[in-house]
């Protein structure tokens, strides 16, 4: 595709192909919304079916969940700063904030894995009941998305180091940032409708 450059348009929007990729990714996020809402719907249907196994409020630990939430919220913020740096054409800023974002992401994953180990010790494995199946699948799908995102963005960092901020790398980073923010949105709903709801009701 030919590159139309214009001073006012951010780099990632500057070619038609870039615009198409970004639009396509938004549509993919629409599909992700459907995917996660299906997981949520199944969770809501099955959450009371504990079949004698542990119930949500018996095993959830508010402190750990809050730490996970703050880690992910902060990573979403630093991810925004990374894109801000990218739009100021600061390769080092983009690099720096992206690495910070990934570190927060890794911290989140560490906490989540510990959380899962804790549940398994409490006798709640994915095979225990309808509730645990839906719970672990919802959480696990989100966690798998975070893991995938970390690997993906790490690969982008290599490309950034090699090529600098170009129309293509800018587009890739921008799309990855959409993905990362989206995972934060999903987590907000998990936090509210799985953890808080489970502990309150």
């Amino acid at each position: 595709m030919t590159a139309h450059t214009s001073a006012n348009v951010p780099l990632e929007y500057q070619t038609n192909q870039n615009q198409m990729n970004i639009l396509g990714f938004w549509i993919f996020l629409g599909a992700e919304i459907v995917l996660f809402s299906t997981l949520f719907a199944s969770y809501f249907v099955l959450e009371h079916n504990t079949a004698g196994g542990p119930v949500g409020h018996e095993i959830f630990i508010l402190k750990d969940v809050l730490i996970e939430t703050f880690l992910l919220l902060t990573s979403s913020f630093t991810c925004g700063l990374a894109i801000h740096a990218m739009r100021n054409n600061s390769k080092n800023g983009l690099m720096f904030w992206t690495i910070i974002t990934l570190l927060f992401g890794l911290g989140f994953l560490y906490m989540e894995i510990n959380e899962f180990i804790h549940y398994i010790h409490e006798g709640a494995t994915i095979q225990t009941s309808g509730f645990t199946a839906a719970f672990f699948t919802l959480l696990g799908t989100h966690g798998a998305h975070v893991s995938f995102g970390i690997v993906w963005i790490a690969l982008l960092l290599i490309q950034l180091a090699k090529r600098g901020i170009t129309q293509v790398t800018a587009r890739k980073f921008f799309i990855a940032s959409l993905y990362w923010h989206f995972l934060d949105v999903v987590w907000i709903f998990i936090f509210t409708f799985v953890y808080l709801k489970g502990m309150v009701m």
Binding site: L23, W26, S37, F40, F77
Partner: peptide, 29 residues
């Protein structure tokens, strides 16, 4: 504030897309 949904040439389409997805989410849930 973070994802700048209205940005770009397709801002309007993005909004419609997300509204439609929310509609689907509500129907499914």
């Amino acid at each position: 504030m973070f994802m700048h949904i209205t940005e770009g040439k397709e801002g309007m389409l993005n909004v419609i897309n997300i509204i439609y997805s929310i509609f689907l989410a509500l129907v499914i849930v």
